[in-house]
């Protein structure tokens, strides 16, 4: 069965390597993707910050398109898109008043039957396949960064434990890398303020990365293009205000791709501001941290 794919705007521009690596890795793992035809932007933070109806309607359009296409499930690799699509699904199911307002706007039948999935849940379901095919990324200590939109609000995203999630660590463990135990994995990266209040984003990113580094991480794994850009693109600015971080930020798909020994170029590993090149061969610079237990 084919899996619906909602790349979202970022994967078509700033986070092209996320799109590339995902497609490459999923092909290697035998998962067929069908892109939602003629999808539109989920509305992101600007829609819900200014007009709730618009925010739900924009995402609902994409769910309706997927339904029209006969897709049972849509995977959104961007945490923000995932969150907005899941919110739309939740609101359309629970707020009959708003659902009645929005349904006619969609200009096509909509029965709210498409499940929404994030990339971590997808990989979590593939851990056995990954473990069977991978060459272990031994001696690589990785901080799994969830950010906010993957796990919150719990009743909408219905994914893992909102305070002590373990899914991403499970995927990382399946690649043979070591997930480190650290504190800031659920803190916000600054998301939508990246352009309009860069200083805040730099402050938050610095706190997150400093904590990851202090707990022995050699790289940070993310599952969201916004988190990625705020931690990768802004890292130079973070370093201007304190000691160097030099932490490569990898998409989860890239890490899996590395374990599957896929071509680094196909994974877009050369596209980051902080180069992950050193990670591919270098042994641990510091002693491996004890693996995070599944309780966190």
């Amino acid at each position: 069965m084919t899996l619906g794919y909602f790349p979202g705007c970022s994967l078509h521009s700033g986070a092209k390597e996320y799109d590339l690596s995902l497609r490459a890795v999923l092909q290697a793992l035998g998962v067929e993707l069908t892109e939602v035809r003629d999808w539109s932007c989920c509305g992101a933070s600007s829609a819900h910050a200014t007009n709730h109806t618009l925010a739900v309607a924009l995402s609902a359009r994409n769910l309706a398109l997927a339904e029209e296409q006969g897709l049972a499930k849509v995977m959104a690799p961007c945490a923000a898109c995932f969150n907005r699509l899941a919110t739309a699904r939740h609101v359309m199911a629970h707020d009959e008043g708003l659902a009645t307002t929005i349904r006619p706007m969609l200009t096509r039948p909509f029965n709210n039957q498409v499940e929404v999935q994030n990339v971590v849940a997808l990989f979590k379901g593939l851990t056995e396949v990954i473990a069977a095919k991978m060459t272990p990324l031994s001696h690589l200590n990785v901080a799994c960064y969830y950010g906010c939109l993957l796990v919150r609000p719990p009743e909408v995203v219905a994914f893992d434990d909102p305070e002590m999630p373990t899914s991403m660590e499970a995927v990382v463990a399946a690649t043979g890398a070591t997930p480190v135990s650290w504190s800031k994995r659920l803190e916000c990266c600054g998301a939508g303020l990246s352009l309009s209040r860069t200083a805040s984003v730099v402050r938050m990113g610095r706190e997150i990365l400093a904590d990851a580094k202090a707990h022995g991480a050699q790289a940070v794994v993310v599952a969201c293009p916004m988190c990625h850009s705020n931690l990768d693109l802004r890292q130079a600015a973070m370093q201007r205000r304190g000691e160097p971080l030099d932490l490569p930020i990898l998409f989860l798909s890239q890490l899996v791709g590395m374990a599957l020994k896929l071509d680094p170029e196909a994974l877009g590993l050369g596209r980051h501001f902080v180069s992950p090149a050193a990670l591919q061969l270098a042994p641990a610079l510091i002693a491996p941290q004890p693996r995070a237990s599944l309780q966190g």
Binding site: D161, P162, E163, M164, Q295, G296
Partner: peptide
């Protein structure tokens, strides 16, 4: 703790679930 004996109860993940 994360595991609660009573269905109505939730633990405190934000306080580490007792870990």
């Amino acid at each position: 703790a994360q595991k609660q004996a009573h269905e109505l109860l939730q633990g405190y993940g934000e306080y580490g679930y007792g870990t």
